[in-house]
């Protein structure tokens, strides 16, 4: 049971992030919401690779009497998460720079007023 808690945290974080993206009207809060969803997905990937009592998957630095490979956590999800974090940083930086420009040209961060393009 205790090892399922991260999965509940993933669901809650996704819900929180989605709430921010859908119901918050401030563009910066929308960007924050996306970052929260992204953290949730990263947590999900990391949790997938965890094994109870597992050690870091470094062959040259293994403690004694570790079963190979059952005693190690999975390395692939960590590689995926690392990639995903890097992408997330780029997305966040790009979105925030858009927000800066939008504030320059519209004078507001309210998503209900940033709608020159519609219909």
């Amino acid at each position: 049971m205790i090892y399922n808690i991260p999965f509940f945290a993933v669901i809650i974080l996704i819900a929180v992030g989605m709430y921010a993206v859908i119901f918050r009207r401030n563009l910066i809060k929308i960007a924050i919401g996306i970052t929260i969803v992204e953290s949730a997905v990263n947590l999900f990937l990391i949790t997938l690779g965890y094994r109870e009592g597992g050690v870091a998957p470094i062959y040259t630095n293994l403690p004694a009497n570790v079963v190979i490979p059952g005693g190690m956590v999975l390395p692939v999800p960590q590689a995926l998460t690392l990639t995903s974090i890097v992408i997330g940083v780029a997305v966040l930086a790009l979105m925030l720079s858009f927000v800066i420009r939008i504030y320059q040209y519209y004078g507001t961060l309210d998503s209900k007023k940033v709608r020159r393009l519609k219909e």
């Binding site: 993206v21 563009l27 929308i30 960007a31 996306i34 992204e38 997305v91 790009l94 979105m95 858009f98 927000v99 420009r101 939008i102 040209y105 519209y106 940033v114 709608r115 020159r116 393009l117």
Partner: peptide, 15 residues
């Protein structure tokens, strides 16, 4: 101005 708005919308939905 509106170019940034379009880009922001694209960025949010695609990410």
């Amino acid at each position: 101005g509106d170019a940034v708005e379009g880009a922001f919308k694209y960025c949010v939905v695609s990410s």
